[in-house]
Amino acid sequence: MIVEELESIWYIILKDLRAYYFKPPNISWGILFPLVLALAFTLRNPSGFAELSPGLIAMAALFGTTSMEAIVITFEKRVGALERLMLAPISLRTILMGKILSGAIFGLMIAGTMTLISIGFMGNQITSPALFIISLLLTVLTLSALGALVAVSVKEVFEAQTLSNYFRFPMIFLCGVFLPVEAMPMPLQVLAHVLPLTYSVDALRQTSMGSVHFRLLFDITALVLFLLTFLILATRLLKKSLE
């Protein structure tokens, strides 16, 4: 039974990558977006790029996962293709895990491009590669689950985009991408700590810039909890749509 569910997840990933994510326009956007982002910040302040790069990698992951995934899921809902999956002998959780993983792979492609630009062209170092990869994987999975949650809660593609922007843009400013969380007023610091990107940025910063603190374990735990919460909520919402 578990093997069947795992196989189904894999087939949904393959289908989504082939039908949606790995289309030439999406691949070129996936390369162009981090490239433009890196160039813009390098030209503005060449010496400050290293400091910003963990935040920019997290930001690339955020946009990479949520933007396309929201379109894919809401589009499939609209044309009835998601129902096609729901007719198959697999659980709703399996369907969502397939969707989340395919979105995460696309997000990883974009965040990975940003990381390669950061290392290859800007000369940055990844001080703890293994922990960095774990942090990045958890980041794309969590943010992809957030994208899935948004997508199953709305009906139209434009609603998904609008709703995504409600949390995407505040997260960029609150979660330490440009400005350290500690430098913000206390109410905003509290707000930052209920947003997953804060833990992603902190984990990526620790693993790519200097020494890893005990705090990393807290970041990773927080990301796992966010991931599970988003998955459970998205599954419940999808189940509710059957009532």
Binding site: K15, R18, A19, V79, A81, E83, R84, L87
Partner: peptide
């Protein structure tokens, strides 16, 4: 097997 009112397979495949 179900054949819904709208043919809802995947256009891109």
């Amino acid at each position: 097997g179900v054949v819904p009112e709208t043919s809802n397979l995947y256009d891109e495949l």
